[in-house]
């Protein structure tokens, strides 16, 4: 494997079973939460995954973090296949990969003081450190997230902090072990605009200082464009487009991305040209594995879209798209 690649995901798949029908007539249908997802993240890079709720972005992150078993596929982290190694080994690797969760009100134990919360990861992974060393690390971590003076915060409980401060503590908990990789799952979606910017800048700062690699999950394209070097757009469990942020924003090539970009870039254009950009379709995650997942809402669909799922196809410069007919209609519209 290429040395500069930290995380590589190959043909990752996760299916859930959805039960329906009555007691006597149980039907089990497979739901494709994540379907043949491939991507890699280079060292020091931030890859953003964007998509609507239920598109599989969080499931992907949870599988990468080994919080969920995959159905098939492989995840290579620093050359180790996370899907096949033993639990003890996974625990050792966890020191290098940490996660920041969405809701800072849910993820901090209300009965623990900040110092206890931040001590947990050290107690789990750095057992041999003397306790005064640990305390020093905790103070360092609190200062690194710009809560100063750290002593003021050590013995507080989470309910004594504001939302933004809590999310900072959650970030401190993730970086205290000096990991090389962080998965951030919508870290700012619960926060107000005025605090959000601070958290985003803090994450960018930490990346610079610690050389972090990040998987950044969001539903907000403008946040993603501010944070990420590359963006992967997911729709119903599949990556429909992936590429450098500039490419995705300036020349989106999948009809879904085009609609998404036009909403954020120029809402009035979207309002006037709504029918040309997206159809009022239903999202059905139980649909069979035939055809393109976007076909119910795609204004450019052709016959082939109903019968065959499109493969992801490179457009050059790291930009790739999964659409049968992007070349046809891109010509038409331009």
């Amino acid at each position: 494997m290429d040395n500069s690649v930290l995380l590589k995901v190959n043909q990752l798949k996760k299916t859930f079973i959805k039960k329906s029908g009555t007691v006597f007539n149980r039907k089990k249908t497979e739901v494709y939460a994540v379907n043949n997802v491939n991507f890699e993240i280079k060292k020091g890079e931030i890859l953003g995954i964007i998509g609507e709720s239920g598109c599989g972005k969080t499931t992907t992150a949870r599988m990468v973090m080994r919080l969920m078993e995959e159905s098939s596929g492989e995840i290579l982290f620093e050359g180790n296949n996370l899907c096949t190694i033993k639990n003890a080994e996974t625990n050792r690797l966890r020191k290098n990969m940490q996660m920041i969760f969405q809701d800072p009100y849910d993820t901090l134990n209300p009965g623990m003081r900040i110092v206890d919360i931040l001590m947990e990861p050290l107690n789990a992974h750095e057992k041999n450190l003397p306790s005064n060393e640990k305390l020093k690390r905790v103070i360092e971590a609190i200062e690194s997230i710009e809560l100063k003076p750290a002593e003021d915060y050590l013995y507080r409980y989470p309910h004594q902090l504001s939302g933004g401060q809590r999310q900072r503590i959650a970030i401190a908990r993730a970086v205290i072990l000096k990991p090389s990789f962080i998965a951030a799952d919508e870290p700012t979606s619960m926060l107000d605009v005025s605090v959000r910017a601070g958290i985003l800048n803090l994450l960018l700062d930490l990346r610079k200082k610690m050389g972090l690699t990040m998987l950044f999950i969001t539903h907000d394209l403008s946040t993603a464009s501010y944070m990420c070097d590359r963006i992967a757009v997911m729709y119903q469990g599949r990556i429909v487009e992936i590429g450098p942020t500039k490419k995705i924003i300036q020349s989106p090539s999948h009809p879904y991305t085009i609609a998404l970009v036009s909403v954020v870039k120029d809402l009035n254009y979207f309002i006037e040209n709504r029918e040309k950009l997206i159809l009022d379709g239903e999202v059905d995650s139980t649909r069979k594995d035939t055809g393109c997942t976007f076909v119910t809402r795609c204004p450019h669909q052709e016959k082939v879209c109903h019968s065959k799922a499109p493969e992801i196809e490179a457009l050059g410069n790291g930009h790739a798209v999964a659409c049968h007919c992007h070349s046809n209609w891109l010509e038409k519209t331009s």
């Binding site: 504001s162 933004g164 605009v193 005025s194 605090v195 959000r196 910017a197 601070g198 958290i199 985003l200 800048n201 394209l221 403008s222 946040t223 464009s225 501010y226 942020t245 924003i249 970009v261 954020v264 870039k265």
Partner: peptide
Amino acid sequence: KALLNATPNLSDPDREVVSIPGS
């Protein structure tokens, strides 16, 4: 002014967003 500066803007992704200090 601060609110406008705190919002990331797609047409100008290189502009740094600035948070409003305090609460």
